[in-house]
Design a protein around this nucleic acid. Sequence first.
DNA 1: GGATGTGAAGTAGTTCACAGCC
DNA 2: GGCTGTGAACTACTTCACATCC
Lengths: 231, 231
Amino acid sequence: MPSPFTRPSSLPEPTVARLPVYQRIAREMVRRGRERADSETLGRLAGVAPATVRRDLAGLGSLGTRGAGYDVAVLAERIEEALGHHEHYDVILIGVGNLGHALVNSSNFLISGAELVGLYDVNPEVIGTDVAGHVVQDFMGELAPATLAVLCVPPSVAQDAADRVVEHNIHAILNFAPQVLSVPIGTAVRYVDFSIELQILAYQLTNGTGPLGGGLIHSLGISRNTPPRSA
Amino acid sequence: MPSPFTRPSSLPEPTVARLPVYQRIAREMVRRGRERADSETLGRLAGVAPATVRRDLAGLGSLGTRGAGYDVAVLAERIEEALGHHEHYDVILIGVGNLGHALVNSSNFLISGAELVGLYDVNPEVIGTDVAGHVVQDFMGELAPATLAVLCVPPSVAQDAADRVVEHNIHAILNFAPQVLSVPIGTAVRYVDFSIELQILAYQLTNGTGPLGGGLIHSLGISRNTPPRSA
DNA sequence: GGATGTGAAGTAGTTCACAGCC
DNA sequence: GGCTGTGAACTACTTCACATCC
């Protein structure tokens, strides 16, 4: 046994991005009463090569059985543990416009472990209203303590909003504004930019789909953050 | 139709994902009356290393000037051309729930060149209503001809919806449902999955931010599609 | 027999460092 | 002098192929 203890230290980012997909598939199989699945099956459902599935899952420790594949209940559990679903995260959301509404009302948005503890806006017409059981607060007032902030504000004020949440000791930001943010070292930012996705598709349409000029049967969108040189 | 002259058959996907960011920055500079910018400045604003900026832009042809940087007007123009903003795309959106609403009403969503030509749903309460100037149609009825479909439907029906748009000769799908899709070769799919992004952040929070245990000053979220082996 | 886990090979993308041109 | 464009080095991830173990 080369690794005495499962190193949670750091999985490759593409792997981390695929784990939630495996998790979803495994949970669904559990729900359907299925017990085991092999890397080929998981790969087909996730749009990933079997070898990649095995390499990804091997990173969580030896949880497969040679000759028999993976126990999907164990798999789901183990992935959830690795992703930190058993921890607790307090989440605040800034900017309760159309998108903010949509996220708050989405059943797929909040993972187990994440709890929405506050909605904020600067628009007086929105402040005080009730959205999905939360009263929208003034972003310029007091903020609830949280570990993660979701930014759904216009790009022109995204940096200001980011500065403010960083001051409130939040070290993780999910930014839906099409605006690159400047944050201190130690703060993680992830971007979701619909327009970029659309543009990539448009590019692929005009330039032939896929790297091989061919196409794809399944495909899995994964993302990662690229930190610049730190020097 | 592709003109093989100045068109380098296909740019790396991470490059394509960054081009919209450079474009936005360049347009903003033009708006502010600025004429030129060097790769270091662009990189700082985009959260990307200067060398990467230069390599990305070199892929569009020689559009910089040694010693003087890039003309931002030319830059914006050239990027837009490469991304296909000068082409025309008819876009349909399936699933006019909270998220569909948010997208349709977002000023950042549709790029120049993309035109929304139809909204569809299966919910009788939604069909017939007017959303942002479009009357929602029955998804089970006739579909407007389009080149690109945006899926904002629940995951349980995402595959059915995908099958249907594929039958209607659409070869590009932007899928917001947390569901991997199976589509024929030649059809491009991109995924936007909020929950995955949140989980990646949660992972980074518990496992120290960034690959080097350090952090990041700027960061740019990029995504790509990973096609499996086509066997 | 059958499928995992993993060294080794392959591939893609980033960054360095400097030649080349303004 | 300054900054681009790019071969070469480096780093990261994926895929192969097979020894390993159930």
